[in-house]
Simulated scan of single mutants.
Amino acid sequence: MAAGLFPCRSLLSRRIGAVRALLGAARGRTEGPQTHFGFQNVSEEERREKIYQVFENVAEKYDVMNDSMSLGIHRVWKDVLMHKMNPSPGTLLVDVAGGTGDIAFRFLNYVRAVRERQLQQKLRQHQNLSWQEISKSYQEEKSNPLGDSQVVVCDINREMLKAGKQRAQHLGYSEGLSWVLGNAEELPFDDDKFDVYTIAFGIRNVTRIDLALQEAYRVLKPGGRFLCLEFSHVSNPILSRLYDLYSFQVVPVLGEVIAGDWKSYQYLVESIRRFPPQEELKAMIEDVGFLKVDYENLNSGIVAIHSGFKL
């Protein structure tokens, strides 16, 4: 009777195993592929949601925190990036994860300065110009100070874009600047559109770096340049230990004091440690088709600038 009422142990085990397999499959469909959020293991979708929340939380204090965490050195790093780019009037730039506009504003200032120097050189080379001709040249410069250059700031986070637009209005930037809500993994732009693609302190917050790099390659014109400024891996062992101590013991405290958000800055510190080292990122950039890929370490590798060309 017992055998008739209850399945044998081996059959029961098989059924339990089948149920567990189905539950596991369902869980996998729900959670999706696994990745990391700082030192936590999470699904890709959960990571995207958490990162969006991080930057929504810190948007208003983002620039103040950058100054506090880096002691202002992030400004120098961004200036180095701009000089490495060396844009000329007429350059079309997309700055991805550009949020509050730091790279965009530097780009506009740089192009204006280049165009002004070009005008001065032109006038010096033509000493016999009349004052009417000189005045006309200056009027042309005044009407088109960027030489048709444009920068498109693209960011996935509405609050970061909002903060950037407010800064632009406060600082007087309007010409040659536009703001687009978009995902680095699926950019809302046509193929072969931009001369330069930049992403500064943003690529480590992208869930699928490979997709972001593919999109960078797609939207660049043939001959276009990819530039990435990002925290990286410190080569000096002593500096590395001091850097870790500062990162884990000081940065989250600054986040709590200045932005009222310990957890977001704890994540940002952890995300740096999980980011691919310089050579690994270089290989990833090459894998999507970029050529002449190299990188420059700044401050012993605290940050690195990676560069590549679509040839």
Rank of each mutant, 00 (worst) to 15 (best):
I103H: 02
S68M: 11
L146W: 11
R20Y: 11
K50I: 04
T198C: 12
R27C: 13
I156K: 00
E230G: 12
I305R: 11
E141T: 13
C8F: 05
I272R: 03
Q278A: 10
R117K: 15
L311F: 02
V234P: 04
R158E: 14
L211D: 10
M1D: 15
V250M: 02
I103G: 05
E186Y: 07
P33C: 08
L229Q: 03
Y62N: 09
V269L: 00
E56Y: 11
L71T: 09
T35R: 06
L123C: 04
Y246R: 06
A216D: 15
L181E: 15
V96Y: 01
E215M: 04
G4R: 12
E45G: 11
G176D: 07
L177F: 05
T35L: 03
Y217M: 05
R112G: 00
F105A: 12
V80N: 07
G224R: 11
A212Q: 09
Q127M: 03
R167E: 07
L281Y: 13
R241C: 09
R15I: 15
Q125A: 05
K165W: 03
R112V: 02
S232F: 07
G38S: 03
N109S: 06
Y110H: 08
D67T: 09
L81E: 01
P145G: 09
K193N: 12
Y52P: 12
V76P: 01
G301H: 06
V42S: 03
L211C: 09
Y197E: 11
Q214G: 02
L171V: 12
R117L: 13
N299C: 02
G17C: 08
L268H: 03
V58A: 07
Q53V: 11
I73L: 04
N41M: 09
N205Y: 10
R241L: 04
P87G: 03
F37D: 14
V114Y: 06
P276R: 12
R218T: 02
L161C: 07
N236P: 09
Q118T: 14
V58L: 00
E279R: 10
G255S: 13
P87S: 09
C8S: 14
Q34P: 14
N297Y: 08
E279W: 03
S130H: 04
N299E: 12
G90K: 06
S130W: 00
R117F: 01
L161Q: 10
H36A: 06
K84F: 02
L81F: 00
P237V: 03
Q121C: 05
G182C: 14
Q53H: 06
T35C: 13
G90R: 05
H126S: 13
E186K: 15
L108K: 01
V114H: 13
C228G: 00
T207Y: 04
F39T: 07
Y52C: 13
R274S: 07
L93D: 07
V288I: 03
L146I: 13
E46F: 02
L181V: 10
Y52F: 00
F55N: 08
